[in-house]
Write a protein that binds this DNA or RNA. Structure first.
Lengths: 117, 117
DNA sequence: TAATTACATTAGCATCTACGCAGATGTTTA
DNA sequence: TAAACATCTGCGTAGATGCTAATGTAATTA
């Protein structure tokens, strides 16, 4: 598929060629979509926003977000797999915090967009 | 619901209270999730990435991304509704470009995260 | 005016996703 | 060791999503 061109029409071949030449590997778009998917849920957005200022355990997150601990745990697995949050184990408690600053920036830029649209 | 606290347990009440006090309106998280949802599809990510450097029509985008014009059109409606892309009409052609710079920053920050995880 | 073109919209489908529930895992305490 | 506890995991269901195919709409052209 990659390398083919539009079967039916090419309205602006030079622009199409230029755009095709600048495209990333397909894998990159899948990765992008995967990261954005992790943020594309209001409860996960709440979880992440809560973690901007505090390191919290699963139960506390359930309290703050207002969903079951099981649901929180499943959301955290998704976020952990993508390295958006990191886990610190202390006995039977698991404390979560943001893995790095990228994630906070993503929230900020997106909130900025919402504010100005 | 909002204003309630965890029914069953409060392991760190002071942290829970602090976190609850800093939370945004529920509407904000829904908005965030909606924006991120728009980016949470690899074909839409391709569309947006294509538009970083070029203004393209629907057919050209279909060529570049490798999906049907109908599918592109549906994706563009989603992106247009959220003001992520803007449309310029010229006769029967519709040219699309990024609405503002936030969207490009979101892609860049996310790619940066992917690179360093 | 009729046909063509470029895009938009709709319906139907297959697939994906979030949630709650029930049970499992691993840790601490009695 | 047994009980309590915090978290994790597997599964079923209801709802959301993306695609194709068919149809609609508006602008151009014969």
């Amino acid at each position: 598929m990659a390398g083919d061109r539009c079967k039916t029409r090419e309205i602006h071949p030079e622009k199409v060629d230029a755009a095709r030449g600048e495209m990333l590997d397909d894998r990159k778009y899948a990765d992008l979509a995967e990261i954005f998917s992790a943020l594309a849920d209001s409860n996960r957005a709440k979880i992440i926003y809560s973690l901007v200022h505090h390191e919290l355990c699963v139960c506390d997150l359930a309290c703050v977000v207002g969903i079951s601990e099981s649901a929180v745990s499943q959301h955290l697995r998704i976020l952990r797999t993508l390295r958006l949050v990191k886990q610190r184990k202390d006995g039977r408690m698991a404390f979560y915090s943001l893995n790095d600053d990228h994630i906070r920036v993503l929230l900020d830029v997106c909130l900025e967009h919402i504010r100005h649209r």
